[in-house]
Measured scan of single mutants.
Amino acid sequence: KSEISQVFEIALKRNLPVNFEVARESGPPHMKNFVTKVSVGEFVGEGEGKSKKISKKNAAIAVLEEL
């Protein structure tokens, strides 16, 4: 299972809201860097990556460590 689906499963079991959002985009158009924030109830994680998908996955990994 992907880290993102694990976050949603845990949140569902604990009845917590999940929110993913792109917090920052930086860099030139051909080499963008994304920072995504995820919140699961009061737990927050942040991930960085060269694409929105990678930064979302890294944010999920960060919040899984707290859950």
Results as ranks from 00 to 15, higher is better:
residue 9 E to V: 04
residue 35 V to D: 04
residue 61 I to A: 14
residue 22 V to A: 13
residue 66 E to W: 12
residue 22 V to R: 15
residue 37 K to A: 07
residue 36 T to L: 00
residue 23 A to K: 12
residue 67 L to P: 04
residue 58 N to P: 01
residue 48 E to G: 07
residue 17 P to K: 14
residue 4 I to T: 06
residue 56 K to T: 05
residue 20 F to G: 03
residue 14 R to H: 10
residue 28 P to I: 07
residue 35 V to E: 06
residue 14 R to C: 07
residue 64 L to F: 00
residue 53 K to R: 13
residue 27 G to Q: 08
residue 17 P to R: 13
residue 44 V to K: 13
residue 25 E to M: 14
residue 46 E to I: 15
residue 6 Q to R: 11
residue 64 L to S: 05
residue 57 K to L: 10
residue 8 F to K: 10
residue 66 E to P: 08
residue 39 S to Q: 13
residue 8 F to L: 11
residue 2 S to T: 08
residue 43 F to N: 05
residue 41 G to T: 00
residue 33 N to L: 12
residue 31 M to R: 14
residue 34 F to H: 04
residue 35 V to G: 04
residue 2 S to F: 02
residue 17 P to L: 09
residue 9 E to C: 07
residue 43 F to L: 11
residue 18 V to G: 02
residue 37 K to N: 07
residue 37 K to V: 06
residue 29 P to E: 13
residue 46 E to F: 15
residue 7 V to W: 00
residue 14 R to I: 03
residue 46 E to N: 14
residue 6 Q to Y: 03
residue 31 M to K: 15
residue 18 V to Q: 03
residue 23 A to T: 14
residue 25 E to P: 09
residue 15 N to M: 07
residue 24 R to H: 11
residue 14 R to Y: 13
residue 40 V to A: 04
residue 29 P to I: 09
residue 65 E to L: 06
residue 49 G to M: 02
residue 51 S to M: 03
residue 50 K to C: 13
residue 37 K to H: 07
residue 21 E to L: 10
residue 25 E to Y: 10
residue 52 K to P: 09
residue 58 N to D: 02
residue 61 I to D: 04
residue 35 V to M: 12
residue 25 E to A: 12
residue 6 Q to L: 10
residue 6 Q to D: 05
residue 17 P to H: 11
residue 48 E to S: 14
residue 33 N to E: 08
residue 34 F to S: 04
residue 3 E to A: 13
residue 27 G to D: 08
residue 53 K to T: 07
residue 26 S to Q: 07
residue 8 F to E: 08
residue 35 V to R: 15
residue 20 F to V: 10
residue 37 K to Q: 08
residue 9 E to W: 04
residue 14 R to K: 09
residue 57 K to F: 01
residue 14 R to T: 06
residue 63 V to L: 10
residue 8 F to R: 11
residue 42 E to L: 08
residue 53 K to A: 11
residue 2 S to E: 06
residue 40 V to H: 01
residue 28 P to A: 10
residue 49 G to Y: 00
residue 33 N to Q: 13
residue 14 R to P: 03
residue 25 E to L: 12
residue 46 E to H: 14
residue 23 A to W: 10
residue 64 L to I: 03
residue 40 V to M: 07
residue 8 F to W: 15
residue 4 I to G: 02
